[in-house]
Amino acid sequence: MATLDDSDRTSVEAHTDPSRIQDTGWTMSEVWSRYGPWVVTIVNLTAFFCLWQLFAMSGAINPLFLPSASSMFEALWHGLTTTAPPGAVVSGSIADHLFYSLRNLSIGLAIACVIGIPAGLLMGGNKYVEMILSPYVWALASLPRIALVPLFILFLGFTVKMQITIVVLSAVFPIMINAWAGVKTTEKSLLAAAKVFGASRSDLYTKVVFPYTLPFIISGVQQGIGRGLIGVIIAEIFGGSNGLGYLIRRSADTFNSSLMYAVLLVLVIVSLTLIQFTRWLEAYVAPWRHMDRL
């Protein structure tokens, strides 16, 4: 029986064949390559906040514009650990507003997915749906969404509905366009292979087109989260008396710069967490795509 030469065996076998693996123990360079980035990041950020603190304490810039790092952290701690007493008209607590914004963002994103994913798939799968919808999709996708905020305030007032509508409009197009592109770029040879092995039309969609498109949809959702976060903050800055956007506006109005910087920091953390989550989701759902890119 013919066997293949050794060069044909790749990484998988190298990892699974015990005779080819030797235990090297931990060397300094391996410890560093694993934990080094964390150490650098922690030192880096600590240095950043220390420099900020020193710079603010030197009094070079009016604390109204640049509060000290310590007073920002104080405002952050206070804002996250307190909630508004029952019956309060407006809250000064970051926790309350963070919850409010995240809730609207999640509802908006959920609606955007429910509309955007099927619409994108349909546009990719049916040329008539594509022909009919594409001019509107491109028009609305290219329009800066902020230009629509006054219109929706006019329609819906300073309400939660208005804010969620803005999130949906911000997030739905990247999701839709990515799903559409995924269907359109499905590899022809995969479709041919499925046909040869007996795929019906619906099999082609469920067993080839959809799995192929899934990572596209996830990167659409990733972009949608970024856009949706912008949408929710803009909608709250424009109107309403709730949410992190409102808190930024209010802290500016009341010259409470420590609170404003604390909210900005919260926004950075929220945004990074959400992006990291979708990256993890992508690596989990479509490891093959991640590996292709490496």
Binding site: S189, A193, W288
Partner: peptide, 14 residues
Amino acid sequence: DRGMVFQDYALMPW
């Protein structure tokens, strides 16, 4: 009754 092998393998990557 017919099976096929493709030049670019055409394996489902997922």
